[in-house]
C-alpha cells in the first residue's frame, strides 16, 4: 500500500476560536474513498476528528465535504482521482504528496465543528416549498379503506409522465449544490438549487395540483430570480439531478404566473 498526505481543516469551537489545518499520512489503494481516509484518520490517528457519514454508498447524503475547494460526497470521491497517473505502479515508497489533498467543511454553511455544518440551514429551504403531493379537495387526506384492499386504487401515471419529474426526485439532500452556489453564499435566504428542484419535482408530477401554493416561494424575493445562472450546482451534483435546469424551468413558470397575476389579479 502507498501513502498519501491529506490536510484536514479542523474547528473545535470550545477549544480554539479559529479553524486550523492538521496534516495526516494515510495508506490507500485504488478503492480508497475520501470517507475511508477520514475513517482511517479517526480510528488510527486522531479520534477527535468529527464528520458525518452513514451509507458509504452515495445515497444517504450525509458525507458532503470540500475536496480541494470543490464540493464532493466523501464516499463517492476517491483518492485515486487526485494522484498522478500510475501512482500505484511507481516503485517509490515515499508518500505520494505531489498533490496534497485538502478537505474542508461544505462552503456557505455555518461550521459547527470540524467537517460538520449546520444542515438546518438547508432543510428550512426544502420545507418551505411544500414538498408533498397537494391534491384538490384534499383527496389524499381521506383515510384508507382499512381492510378492503380492492377498494384502494392507485392513480394512473404513464412512464412518460413519470419521466417528466423523475430526475428531480433523485435528490439525496446532500447540499453540495448550495456550497457550489455563489448566490447562496451571498444570501443564505435564497431558496437554492435543491429546494427549487424539489418544488419542480412536485409541480411536474401529473398527480399534483399544488403549483399555485408553491409559486409564491419561487416568485418571491429569494426565489428563482436570485439565480444568476452560474450552473455550477449541476456540475457538482452527484446524482445528476441538474438543479440548474429546475431553476430555469422555475423562471419560466414564475414569469408565466406573474403575467397571469398581472392580468387577472390572482396568483
Amino acid at each position: 500500500m502507498r501513502n498519501c498526505s491529506i490536510a484536514v481543516q479542523r474547528y473545535l469551537p470550545h477549544e480554539h476560536a479559529e479553524p486550523f489545518w492538521q496534516h495526516f499520512t494515510v495508506p490507500f489503494d485504488e478503492s480508497t474513498s475520501i470517507l475511508d481516509a477520514l475513517n482511517y484518520i479517526k480510528e488510527e490517528l486522531d479520534p477527535s476528528l468529527s464528520f458525518r457519514w452513514s451509507c458509504r454508498m452515495a445515497i444517504c447524503g450525509s458525507c458532503g465535504v470540500m475536496v480541494n475547494g470543490i464540493p464532493k460526497l466523501g464516499c463517492k470521491d476517491f483518492l485515486r482521482n487526485y494522484l498522478p497517473r500510475n501512482y500505484l505502479a511507481s516503485e517509490s515508497t515515499a508518500a505520494v504528496s505531489a498533490a496534497e489533498i485538502r478537505i474542508q467543511p461544505l462552503a456557505h454553511f455555518t461550521v459547527e465543528r470540524d467537517l460538520i455544518v449546520d444542515m438546518n440551514e438547508f432543510l428550512v429551504h426544502l420545507e418551505a416549498v411544500k414538498p408533498y403531493l397537494i391534491t384538490d379537495a384534499g383527496a389524499d387526506e381521506t383515510p384508507l379503506e382499512k381492510h378492503a384492499q380492492t377498494l384502494a386504487q392507485t392513480n394512473k401515471q404513464t412512464p412518460a409522465q413519470l419521466a417528466k419529474y423523475k430526475q428531480f426526485a433523485n435528490c439525496i439532500n446532500c447540499g453540495l449544490c448550495y456550497s457550489a452556489c455563489p448566490q447562496f453564499g451571498l444570501n443564505p435566504e435564497f431558496v437554492g438549487p435543491a429546494a427549487i428542484a424539489l418544488a419542480q419535482r412536485y409541480n411536474l408530477d401529473s398527480r399534483d395540483q399544488g403549483k399555485a401554493a408553491r409559486m409564491p416561494v419561487l416568485n418571491g424575493h429569494n426565489g428563482v430570480w436570485s439565480c444568476t445562472f452560474v450552473g455550477f450546482c449541476s456540475d457538482v451534483c452527484p446524482k445528476h439531478v441538474d438543479p440548474a435546469a429546475a431553476v430555469n424551468q422555475g423562471k419560466v413558470e414564475s414569469a408565466k404566473s406573474m403575467l397571469i397575476q398581472m392580468f387577472t389579479g390572482r396568483g
Binding site: N155, T158, L162
Partner: peptide, 21 residues
C-alpha cells in the same frame, strides 16, 4: 397492498407500465 397504494397517493414514484398502472 393498501399500504403501497397509500404510498402512491403520497407521491411515491413507483415504476409504471405503459398503461399507467
Amino acid at each position: 397492498h393498501a399500504e403501497l397504494v397509500q404510498m402512491e397517493r403520497w407521491g411515491c414514484p413507483w415504476s409504471r407500465q405503459a398503461n399507467g398502472d
